[in-house]
Design a binder for these strands. Structure first.
Lengths: 210, 210, 210, 210
DNA sequence: GATGAATGAGTATTCATTCAT
DNA sequence: TATGAATGAATACTCATTCAT
């Protein structure tokens, strides 16, 4: 019925499974019983199709994040809620995870991803710095914290195939996901605690490399 | 004579820049002035070429990790040293980072990557659990800790293009890399501190989401 | 209302610029803001569209030729007038020139062009032979004369891009066009003079080639 | 055996028959039993293939022209010989005629054609002006004369399909070709005679249009 | 080891045309 | 008349791989 949505769903599936480069318009079209030329009619390009797929995800993710940061709770509670929301979103949208993972780094679609992620990061940074002045700079600077929390969550899913043998079950399984969320929440707690304490000096001796 | 090495270097370059799927044997061959057919003579396959590139990296990475964990220091010191070594290795081998990032998740080369990464993780887990019994299970279970540390480091590089606008300079720049290492070291310290304390209870009430 | 005319004008433009084969119905439709399907509604075919474009031109050209040959002047004067009229018409309708140039030779539209040009040529031949019996046959036979005059004019325009560097300005520029008309008129004069003289013998000895 | 030549011959055939745009690499490859990809291997492009076809023709044509203008005869004799040589060449290479006819005007290959034709024209102009000072400017300026002679010959072939009904046989048939050469030679003779006479004034009154 | 030629399957994309509304 | 969606065939071009030399 809604051809455009049909194509989007199929593209999401195929892009998520084999990646943008290995995906073919033929496979996408056939997998949803739509004429190949319609992809170009509706999305102009294979690239336009990817952009549409990503936009759909980021619209939902943006709403999720805004929802978690909104409301009347303390920032600490909001952040904890955000971690959960983020983890749930990625756990429920593993294909999105995979697409971003593949295309974020150095590809020709990095721009698209950056344009959607940066505002989300900015939002988080503003909130953090406002509440925790210590995060304005130093070891626990907001930009590092945010990347860290993001990495803690996303790595769980994108290295799923790699770590599965260490866990005994898939990382996105409900049991594993719950455990992971508790782990990340714990780290976030430790970090916020640290931010609230007077600055703990880093051991500056014995630094290696770099 | 060094044709094989020449090809490997070129493949590393091209795979790292555009990814395995988008890379072509022609580009690899031309970029190092070698006949295209020689790639198949020496490596059988495009896939064999990727495997060779990855093996070279993992051999070096394995040595790096073994070196950091060896010796007579305390485990805490070893782990801190490991974080630095890992970060330095990835910072100096961004193309390796990108390749793994792209291929680890869901692709047809995930096996290869898993086979090389799992032993490294196992090594870390054994060391951790031996010294910190609290890491055998619970919020700070070894497998979560290891993935976390790995994610804290790797995300910095693989989302480099994305977060660059938030930093003002490239994440692999010496200054940024040093800051990142200090950040991760700080988190590791917090985590080990927590492992040494009697179990701090997680707020189990009010959990949100999935 | 004038949709049909709008499409015709756009088709004329596009066919003239890139040729029938390279022209696309999409480009024609978009260039005049009309729905692509309307082309088929009004003209049945891409081919029908070309036919309509050509017909419009040939209707005007036929009138032009008839006008030049009509009236009470001597045939010599009429022919001179015809040369001018033809040159002016083509100079003002370069796209027509290009279309005919491309499609007259061997294409699938040659029929259409032949059907419209032959009557015009027949008209000229009848007039010539009636006035100049010497043109019934021989070196200056009417069919050769007519093709020649046609070629003298049309080549100027269709090889415009080629000879432009030899001239310093575009062949259809007023100054160049005036010079060309004077040149062709001069040749026509020489030819009519020759037709009026008692048969000048061609050097039949020493012929070279085919 | 010589695949490159095989492809060139097939491309010549197909380009000549249906034109560059309507020609397909598939048809060219199939018509000479060669793998489609080999066209791109040997010529890089469909466009490169056309360039190679044209180059082959122009190399031969250039030699032909140089041969006709060389030697110890009077310029008048040389020019007459040139007309014959040109006519023979085009008569024997009708496909070349057609290709140039189609692509010379406004297409994207006009450059290629211009680059090869201009030197040939320059050659002729230099010879003309040296011997006939009257052709330096005026009604019978060399550039007009050359275009005219070129047009007189080429039009005969390129409008072959159009004028065939007026002639009863194909323009490239030996009998018709001989007649045409005699006609053009006659015009050339008239023109050279005129160039040798003291300047005949053009009737400047009664000019029409422009 | 090394090379140039060859191959067949496959790619994204485009096109004229049709059709239901 | 007009339109947006749909279609199937076709197009230039690319790719990993093979092979004779």
């Amino acid at each position: 019925m809604d051809t455009k949505e049909t194509i989007l769903a199929a593209a999401d599936q195929v892009f998520g499974e084999v990646g943008y480069d290995a995906a073919t318009t033929r496979e996408i079209a056939e997998s949803c019983g739509v004429n190949k030329a319609l992809i170009h009619y509706h999305f102009k390009n294979k690239e336009g199709l990817l952009a549409a797929v990503l936009d759909r995800y980021y619209d939902r993710l943006g709403a999720e994040v805004a929802g978690a940061l909104g409301g009347a709770a303390t920032l600490r509670d909001k952040l904890v809620r955000l971690v959960d929301a983020y983890a749930d979103f990625l756990g429920q949208n593993l294909r999105f995870c995979r697409i971003v993972q593949r295309e974020a780094s150095g590809g020709m679609h990095a721009d698209k991803i950056r344009d959607r992620m940066v505002p989300i990061f900015e939002l988080g940074r503003a909130a953090l710095v406002a509440e925790y002045p210590a995060s304005a700079t130093g070891d626990l600077a907001a930009e590092h914290l945010l990347i860290s929390v993001y990495g803690l969550i996303v790595t769980w899913f994108t290295y799923g195939d790699v770590i599965a043998p260490l866990l005994g079950s898939a990382p996105a399984a409900k049991r594993q996901l719950t455990a992971r969320k508790r782990h990340v929440r714990r780290i976030v707690t430790l970090l916020l605690d640290a931010l609230e304490r007077p600055a703990a000096p880093t051991r500056s001796a014995g630094e290696i490399g770099g």
